[in-house]
Nucleic acid binder design. Structure first.
Length: 270
DNA sequence: CTCGGAGCCTGTCTGC
DNA sequence: TGCAGACAGGCTCCGA
Protein backbone atom coordinates (compact mmCIF):
# COMPACT_ATOMS: atom_id res chain seq x y z
CA UNK A 1 0.00 0.00 0.00
CA UNK A 2 1.85 2.95 1.20
CA UNK A 3 4.35 4.74 -0.93
CA UNK A 4 5.47 8.30 -0.40
CA UNK A 5 2.12 10.01 -1.14
CA UNK A 6 0.17 7.68 1.14
CA UNK A 7 2.63 8.07 4.00
CA UNK A 8 2.57 11.84 3.52
CA UNK A 9 -1.23 11.73 3.63
CA UNK A 10 -1.18 9.77 6.88
CA UNK A 11 1.34 12.14 8.46
CA UNK A 12 -0.59 15.25 7.39
CA UNK A 13 -3.86 13.89 8.72
CA UNK A 14 -2.30 12.80 12.02
CA UNK A 15 -0.37 15.99 12.69
CA UNK A 16 -3.17 18.26 13.98
CA UNK A 17 -4.54 15.48 16.20
CA UNK A 18 -1.25 14.40 17.73
CA UNK A 19 0.91 17.50 18.02
CA UNK A 20 1.13 18.73 21.60
CA UNK A 21 -0.65 15.72 23.06
CA UNK A 22 0.77 13.82 26.02
CA UNK A 23 1.06 10.04 26.09
CA UNK A 24 -0.74 8.15 28.79
CA UNK A 25 0.01 4.55 27.82
CA UNK A 26 1.47 2.45 25.06
CA UNK A 27 0.24 -1.08 24.57
CA UNK A 28 1.53 -3.60 22.07
CA UNK A 29 -0.67 -6.54 21.16
CA UNK A 30 1.28 -8.23 18.40
CA UNK A 31 4.31 -10.34 19.32
CA UNK A 32 5.78 -9.64 15.88
CA UNK A 33 6.01 -5.95 16.76
CA UNK A 34 7.72 -6.82 20.01
CA UNK A 35 10.86 -7.72 18.14
CA UNK A 36 11.54 -4.04 18.59
CA UNK A 37 12.13 -3.00 22.20
CA UNK A 38 9.52 -0.58 23.44
CA UNK A 39 10.57 2.36 25.59
CA UNK A 40 8.61 4.05 28.34
CA UNK A 41 6.38 6.57 26.66
CA UNK A 42 4.06 7.68 29.45
CA UNK A 43 4.32 11.40 30.16
CA UNK A 44 6.08 12.28 26.93
CA UNK A 45 4.62 14.94 24.70
CA UNK A 46 4.36 14.62 20.93
CA UNK A 47 6.43 17.38 19.39
CA UNK A 48 6.67 16.30 15.75
CA UNK A 49 4.65 14.34 13.18
CA UNK A 50 6.17 13.92 9.75
CA UNK A 51 7.44 11.55 7.12
CA UNK A 52 10.83 10.02 6.51
CA UNK A 53 10.88 8.10 3.24
CA UNK A 54 8.00 5.66 3.51
CA UNK A 55 7.85 5.86 7.29
CA UNK A 56 5.68 8.00 9.53
CA UNK A 57 7.97 9.77 11.96
CA UNK A 58 6.67 10.82 15.38
CA UNK A 59 8.85 12.81 17.78
CA UNK A 60 8.36 12.59 21.55
CA UNK A 61 9.74 15.02 24.12
CA UNK A 62 12.14 14.01 26.87
CA UNK A 63 10.49 12.28 29.81
CA UNK A 64 12.63 13.68 32.57
CA UNK A 65 16.15 14.94 33.18
CA UNK A 66 18.66 12.62 31.59
CA UNK A 67 16.03 10.88 29.52
CA UNK A 68 16.22 12.52 26.11
CA UNK A 69 13.70 12.83 23.29
CA UNK A 70 12.58 9.79 21.32
CA UNK A 71 11.64 9.20 17.71
CA UNK A 72 9.27 6.55 16.47
CA UNK A 73 9.39 5.50 12.81
CA UNK A 74 6.36 3.46 11.76
CA UNK A 75 6.65 1.53 8.52
CA UNK A 76 3.20 0.57 7.25
CA UNK A 77 4.54 -1.90 4.67
CA UNK A 78 1.56 -3.42 2.85
CA UNK A 79 -1.48 -3.10 5.07
CA UNK A 80 -0.56 -0.96 8.08
CA UNK A 81 -2.91 1.82 9.19
CA UNK A 82 -2.43 4.52 11.79
CA UNK A 83 -5.88 5.59 12.91
CA UNK A 84 -6.72 8.39 15.31
CA UNK A 85 -9.94 8.27 17.26
CA UNK A 86 -11.41 10.49 19.94
CA UNK A 87 -12.49 7.33 21.74
CA UNK A 88 -10.42 4.31 20.77
CA UNK A 89 -12.69 1.95 22.64
CA UNK A 90 -15.29 2.26 19.92
CA UNK A 91 -12.96 0.95 17.19
CA UNK A 92 -13.13 -2.61 16.01
CA UNK A 93 -10.18 -4.43 17.49
CA UNK A 94 -9.65 -6.67 14.46
CA UNK A 95 -5.98 -6.59 13.48
CA UNK A 96 -5.17 -4.12 16.22
CA UNK A 97 -1.40 -4.37 16.78
CA UNK A 98 -0.57 -1.45 19.06
CA UNK A 99 -2.31 1.46 20.71
CA UNK A 100 -1.11 4.73 22.20
CA UNK A 101 -3.55 6.43 24.54
CA UNK A 102 -3.14 10.19 24.73
CA UNK A 103 -4.49 12.87 27.04
CA UNK A 104 -6.95 13.49 24.25
CA UNK A 105 -7.69 10.71 21.78
CA UNK A 106 -6.10 7.40 20.84
CA UNK A 107 -3.69 6.41 18.11
CA UNK A 108 -4.15 2.82 16.94
CA UNK A 109 -1.98 0.76 14.65
CA UNK A 110 -3.87 -1.82 12.60
CA UNK A 111 -2.06 -4.20 10.28
CA UNK A 112 -3.72 -7.15 8.57
CA UNK A 113 -0.64 -8.78 7.12
CA UNK A 114 1.60 -7.86 10.04
CA UNK A 115 4.55 -6.72 7.95
CA UNK A 116 4.55 -3.27 9.56
CA UNK A 117 7.34 -2.26 11.94
CA UNK A 118 8.00 0.17 14.77
CA UNK A 119 11.55 1.48 15.13
CA UNK A 120 12.74 3.71 17.96
CA UNK A 121 15.55 6.24 17.77
CA UNK A 122 17.25 8.66 20.12
CA UNK A 123 17.86 11.18 17.36
CA UNK A 124 15.78 12.19 14.37
CA UNK A 125 18.79 11.88 12.08
CA UNK A 126 19.21 8.24 12.98
CA UNK A 127 15.68 7.63 11.71
CA UNK A 128 16.50 9.25 8.40
CA UNK A 129 16.69 7.05 5.33
CA UNK A 130 19.79 6.61 3.25
CA UNK A 131 18.31 7.93 0.03
CA UNK A 132 17.23 11.38 -1.12
CA UNK A 133 13.60 12.39 -0.78
CA UNK A 134 12.37 12.94 -4.35
CA UNK A 135 10.35 16.02 -3.38
CA UNK A 136 13.22 17.69 -1.53
CA UNK A 137 15.36 20.42 -3.11
CA UNK A 138 18.19 17.90 -2.84
CA UNK A 139 16.93 16.14 -5.94
CA UNK A 140 17.69 18.18 -9.03
CA UNK A 141 18.87 17.22 -12.50
CA UNK A 142 22.50 16.97 -11.42
CA UNK A 143 21.76 14.83 -8.39
CA UNK A 144 19.55 12.50 -10.40
CA UNK A 145 22.23 12.16 -13.09
CA UNK A 146 24.80 11.29 -10.42
CA UNK A 147 22.54 8.68 -8.89
CA UNK A 148 21.72 7.04 -12.22
CA UNK A 149 25.24 7.08 -13.57
CA UNK A 150 26.66 3.65 -14.27
CA UNK A 151 23.63 1.66 -13.12
CA UNK A 152 22.91 -1.34 -15.30
CA UNK A 153 19.73 -2.21 -13.45
CA UNK A 154 16.46 -1.75 -15.30
CA UNK A 155 14.98 1.63 -14.49
CA UNK A 156 11.80 0.19 -12.95
CA UNK A 157 13.79 -1.81 -10.39
CA UNK A 158 16.08 1.18 -9.90
CA UNK A 159 13.15 3.39 -8.92
CA UNK A 160 12.03 0.87 -6.30
CA UNK A 161 15.34 0.95 -4.46
CA UNK A 162 15.29 2.96 -1.27
CA UNK A 163 19.03 3.58 -0.97
CA UNK A 164 19.13 6.26 -3.70
CA UNK A 165 15.67 7.76 -3.90
CA UNK A 166 13.24 7.05 -1.07
CA UNK A 167 9.51 6.71 -1.23
CA UNK A 168 8.69 5.19 -4.59
CA UNK A 169 6.92 1.85 -4.77
CA UNK A 170 5.32 -0.36 -7.34
CA UNK A 171 2.35 1.83 -8.29
CA UNK A 172 4.17 5.11 -8.70
CA UNK A 173 7.19 3.57 -10.41
CA UNK A 174 4.91 2.43 -13.24
CA UNK A 175 3.04 5.73 -13.30
CA UNK A 176 6.23 7.80 -13.31
CA UNK A 177 7.81 5.85 -16.16
CA UNK A 178 4.61 6.21 -18.14
CA UNK A 179 4.49 9.96 -17.49
CA UNK A 180 8.15 10.21 -18.52
CA UNK A 181 7.57 8.06 -21.63
CA UNK A 182 10.48 5.85 -20.59
CA UNK A 183 10.32 2.07 -20.99
CA UNK A 184 10.57 0.17 -17.67
CA UNK A 185 13.07 -2.20 -19.27
CA UNK A 186 15.63 0.52 -19.99
CA UNK A 187 18.97 0.34 -18.26
CA UNK A 188 18.87 3.07 -15.62
CA UNK A 189 22.32 4.39 -16.48
CA UNK A 190 21.47 4.66 -20.16
CA UNK A 191 18.98 7.53 -19.89
CA UNK A 192 20.14 10.61 -21.75
CA UNK A 193 19.79 14.15 -20.53
CA UNK A 194 16.35 14.73 -21.99
CA UNK A 195 15.05 11.47 -20.57
CA UNK A 196 16.45 12.24 -17.15
CA UNK A 197 14.76 15.61 -17.24
CA UNK A 198 11.45 14.00 -18.18
CA UNK A 199 11.92 11.43 -15.42
CA UNK A 200 12.56 14.11 -12.81
CA UNK A 201 9.53 16.10 -13.88
CA UNK A 202 7.40 12.97 -13.90
CA UNK A 203 8.54 12.03 -10.38
CA UNK A 204 7.52 15.43 -9.05
CA UNK A 205 4.29 15.68 -10.99
CA UNK A 206 3.03 12.18 -10.24
CA UNK A 207 3.88 12.34 -6.53
CA UNK A 208 2.46 15.82 -6.01
CA UNK A 209 -0.76 14.96 -7.75
CA UNK A 210 -1.09 11.81 -5.63
CA UNK A 211 -0.54 13.79 -2.44
CA UNK A 212 -3.11 16.33 -3.63
CA UNK A 213 -5.54 13.44 -4.07
CA UNK A 214 -4.79 12.10 -0.57
CA UNK A 215 -3.10 8.98 -1.87
CA UNK A 216 -4.14 5.93 -3.87
CA UNK A 217 -6.60 3.49 -2.29
CA UNK A 218 -6.74 0.20 -4.15
CA UNK A 219 -8.03 -1.63 -1.11
CA UNK A 220 -6.34 -1.06 2.22
CA UNK A 221 -4.97 2.45 2.35
CA UNK A 222 -6.67 4.91 4.72
CA UNK A 223 -5.65 8.21 6.30
CA UNK A 224 -5.70 8.89 10.05
CA UNK A 225 -9.49 9.15 10.00
CA UNK A 226 -10.08 5.96 8.09
CA UNK A 227 -10.84 7.77 4.84
CA UNK A 228 -9.79 6.51 1.40
CA UNK A 229 -7.69 8.51 -1.03
CA UNK A 230 -8.87 9.30 -4.55
CA UNK A 231 -5.72 9.06 -6.64
CA UNK A 232 -6.72 5.62 -7.92
CA UNK A 233 -9.03 7.46 -10.33
CA UNK A 234 -6.05 9.20 -11.87
CA UNK A 235 -3.77 6.21 -12.49
CA UNK A 236 -2.87 5.99 -16.18
CA UNK A 237 -1.41 2.49 -16.47
CA UNK A 238 -1.19 0.78 -13.08
CA UNK A 239 -3.75 -2.02 -12.90
CA UNK A 240 -4.97 -1.25 -16.43
CA UNK A 241 -3.65 -4.23 -18.32
CA UNK A 242 -5.60 -4.76 -21.54
CA UNK A 243 -7.09 -1.28 -21.54
CA UNK A 244 -6.18 1.45 -24.03
CA UNK A 245 -3.28 3.77 -23.30
CA UNK A 246 -4.73 7.23 -22.49
CA UNK A 247 -2.19 8.82 -24.85
CA UNK A 248 -2.16 6.59 -27.91
CA UNK A 249 -4.84 3.92 -27.34
CA UNK A 250 -2.35 1.05 -27.68
CA UNK A 251 -3.15 -1.78 -25.27
CA UNK A 252 -1.47 -1.39 -21.89
CA UNK A 253 0.68 -4.39 -20.99
CA UNK A 254 1.62 -6.00 -17.70
CA UNK A 255 5.02 -7.57 -17.30
CA UNK A 256 6.70 -9.06 -14.25
CA UNK A 257 10.04 -7.54 -13.28
CA UNK A 258 11.78 -8.54 -10.07
CA UNK A 259 8.61 -10.49 -9.16
CA UNK A 260 6.52 -7.31 -9.23
CA UNK A 261 3.97 -6.30 -11.85
CA UNK A 262 4.95 -3.44 -14.12
CA UNK A 263 2.33 -1.76 -16.31
CA UNK A 264 3.33 0.21 -19.38
CA UNK A 265 2.44 1.28 -22.88
CA UNK A 266 4.68 -0.50 -25.39
CA UNK A 267 4.07 2.19 -28.01
CA UNK A 268 4.76 5.44 -26.22
CA UNK A 269 7.40 4.39 -23.69
CA UNK A 270 10.89 3.96 -25.13
C1' DC B 1 26.69 -5.21 -8.67
C1' DT B 2 22.57 -7.68 -10.48
C1' DC B 3 19.31 -11.32 -10.72
C1' DG B 4 16.01 -14.83 -9.34
C1' DG B 5 13.76 -17.05 -5.79
C1' DA B 6 12.05 -17.76 -1.11
C1' DG B 7 10.22 -15.83 2.81
C1' DC B 8 7.70 -12.91 6.09
C1' DC B 9 1.89 -12.71 6.91
C1' DT B 10 -3.25 -12.61 5.91
C1' DG B 11 -7.06 -11.93 2.97
C1' DT B 12 -9.44 -11.94 -1.48
C1' DC B 13 -10.43 -13.47 -5.83
C1' DT B 14 -10.50 -16.84 -9.74
C1' DG B 15 -11.16 -21.07 -11.86
C1' DC B 16 -12.07 -25.85 -11.75
C1' DT C 1 -20.29 -25.15 -2.47
C1' DG C 2 -15.43 -26.36 -1.76
C1' DC C 3 -10.81 -25.96 -2.46
C1' DA C 4 -6.35 -25.08 -4.41
C1' DG C 5 -3.68 -21.62 -6.36
C1' DA C 6 -2.53 -17.01 -7.68
C1' DC C 7 -2.01 -12.58 -6.26
C1' DA C 8 -1.49 -8.17 -3.38
C1' DG C 9 0.79 -1.46 -2.58
C1' DG C 10 6.76 -3.58 1.38
C1' DC C 11 11.32 -5.27 2.16
C1' DT C 12 15.18 -8.72 3.46
C1' DC C 13 17.97 -12.59 2.85
C1' DC C 14 20.37 -16.15 0.25
C1' DG C 15 22.96 -18.19 -3.46
C1' DA C 16 24.51 -17.82 -8.18
Amino acid sequence: MPELPEVETVALSLRPRLTGRTVRTLRVYDPLLRRSTFPRLGGRRIVHVGRSGKRVLIGFSARSAGDGPLWLAVHLRMTGRLIWAADGNRDSRAHLRARIRLDRGTLSFFDTRRFGTFEWYREADAAGPAGIDPLSPGLGEDALARLLRGSRQNVKAWLLRQDRLVGLGNIYASEILYAAAVSPAREAGSLDRRERRRLLEAIRRVLRRAIGNNGTTLSDFRNAHGESGSNQHYLRVYGREGQPCPRCATTVLREVQQQRSTYYCPACQH
